[in-house]
Simulated scan of single mutants.
Amino acid sequence: MSANVENDILSVEKRRQDALIAGDIDALDALFEDSLIHIHAPGLVHTKALLLEHVAVRRAYIEITRQDLLLRTFGDSAVLTGGIVNRMHAPDGGERTIDGVVTQVLHRGDDGQWRFVSFQMTPYGDQVWGALPSEKPEQADEEESE
């Protein structure tokens, strides 16, 4: 993947974040494919039209922080995966923070522009299984062999 493609996609993601915080429906409309499916952390599924209405009515986003992004491209498609922390207004007037991992799929249209076609956030939860043997730190392996 070229540095230009990577920069283009990361720029589109930054514009998405800024538009959500600003409630900029026109910018979001341009960044999302008409076929967009957006799955919020609690499992709520929105089409593009519903997501735009959600943003316009609720104006929930205060701050969005991304972490450890992995970007993979496959021709005119890209998958962006990584951590996210959303600081948001709560329905009761307070604030709430939701953090987890997001998978986003983008497509480059005939006009050369990257647009989002899919978004799914999975909030962090209990890790009931623990680490796999290959994921354990080497220090733990050394202690076990003593």
Results as ranks from 00 to 15, higher is better:
G75M: 06
L51F: 10
L52T: 06
S118I: 10
S11P: 04
Q104S: 10
Q17V: 01
E33T: 08
D24C: 00
D26N: 09
S145C: 05
E63P: 03
W114T: 07
Q120R: 10
Q104R: 07
I9N: 01
D26E: 14
Q120E: 14
G43K: 14
G109Y: 02
S77G: 10
D26Q: 10
Q67E: 15
L31Y: 03
S11L: 08
L36I: 13
V5N: 04
N86R: 03
D141T: 15
D29K: 04
S35R: 14
V57L: 14
E33H: 09
G43N: 12
D34R: 13
D68I: 15
E33M: 08
E6F: 06
H46L: 13
I9F: 05
T97M: 07
L20Q: 00
Q127R: 15
P137M: 14
L132T: 11
A3F: 08
D8R: 03
I98T: 03
S11G: 12
G93S: 03
R72Y: 11
R115A: 03
S134M: 13
S2K: 12
A3I: 15
L70I: 12
D26G: 07
G23W: 00
G130V: 09
F119Q: 01
S11E: 09
E138P: 06
W129R: 14
D29G: 10
N86P: 02
I39S: 03
W129G: 15
R72K: 15
L52S: 06
G112I: 06
A78V: 07
K48V: 01
